[in-house]
Design a protein around this nucleic acid. Structure first.
Lengths: 203, 203
DNA sequence: ACGCGCCCTGTCCTTCGGTCCAATATTCTT
DNA sequence: AAGAATATTGGACCGAAGGACAGGGCGCGT
């Protein structure tokens, strides 16, 4: 099992070697002829024809991870479509590279989490999948919970909401906790993003 | 780190225990209250509200793998959209279950390969349109500040942004402080609201 | 050489946000 | 009458967020 880094640049990035001491840096043509089933190819997107190369290698059971200096959603999709098992930032720390190697080596897919959510969002729309509950979600809330949620969505702090509704900050927290639970969001950030996205659709 | 199998049925499937001898079989309600960050939840789709439950657990940093007795593309997408890290056949052999646990436990995604290609095919079509980004108005920001601002606008925490840009959390705060000053906003809440409003205008 | 802006990091401190442990009163349902 | 849901609050706890202050390094223009 061999690690090959494929890039147009002649110099290595230190973290690559630190992650895989016995890796080699090669160009696209070398990779095409050298790689065999089970090898790991780390393919930089600065190569002119990285996408077809990834397809070719993947079809030969080579584990391909695409690396980008400035990752984007479209490129990530292109990489996965080409058969790559992962897509990461080229300057990821060594431990992360090793983790990616572990995951991809076990039939797993590795994509940065923040990319994943956006990619899947697009997927769902593209498939015409079932619409998420838009206003429905707010109706599951009680009157007070809704009031708190709306105020928070305006950007108010817990203390400000408490003043506005004339209740204790503690009570605001209680209601807000219920809102988080019911809408399955982590924190107020996810709440405002959720409501913002909803507004978008309506308008 | 605990393994919990969540299903409506009362009897276990032998391969589950064979894969994870100290796992427990619980119902949906028990899982909701028992699971904490880092735990592994194996969620059967025979549970009535498995999708919202997956969302809730995923938001609490629980590793969720959805299991189906008759897998489908649509259901796989739904599972991943809900934040599940994997989607497999409920009767998969023990070794496969362990492999999935390894992959998902290392930030990986696990889906059956034949499913993946179909899913990505649909995805690629769906994401044809260009992403709309409010970059124009952020011209007063430096490159780094803009990167941080965009990440924060996605709802990421400072720590998450730090991981993504491979800098310390402290540096993220520094950039973010500069962003607040330049854009004349008080905190990250006002930032996301400002960017959300802008997005609206563009569309 | 010097100043300047940008990028990165550190420590210390305060406030805010969120959860877990409660408890009490009211209303509505069964 | 008993039970469930709702609204309200308390305390304690811990991590996240943000500011204040203080640096070091790098590139660029004068």
């Amino acid at each position: 099992m061999v690690h090959l880094f494929v890039s147009r640049r002649r110099d290595e990035i230190p973290r690559w070697r630190s992650a895989f001491p016995d890796a080699r840096l090669v160009n696209a043509d070398q990779a095409r002829v050298m790689a065999t089933a089970g090898d790991r190819i780390w393919l930089m997107t600065d190569c002119p024809e990285w996408s077809p190369l990834a397809s070719y290698l993947a079809s030969r059971n080579v584990i391909v991870v695409v690396m980008a200096l400035s990752p984007s959603d479209q490129e990530a999709l292109q990489a996965l479509q080409a058969g790559a098992r992962g897509y990461i930032h080229a300057l990821s720390p060594a431990e992360l590279l090793q983790q990616v190697a572990l995951v991809t080596g076990n039939q797993g897919i590795w994509v940065p989490t923040e990319l994943l959510s956006r990619v899947l969002g697009a997927t769902f729309k593209g498939l015409g999948g079932a619409e998420r509950l838009p206003r429905e979600s707010l109706t599951t809330l009680t009157e007070r919970e809704r009031a708190v949620a709306m105020a928070v969505a305006e950007g108010l702090s817990n203390k400000a909401v408490a003043r506005q509704l004339d209740i204790t900050e503690r009570t605001v927290k209680a209601h807000l906790g219920a809102v988080f639970r019911k809408l399955a969001v982590r924190d107020r950030m996810q709440l405002v993003l959720m409501l913002a996205r909803q507004d978008e659709r309506v308008s």
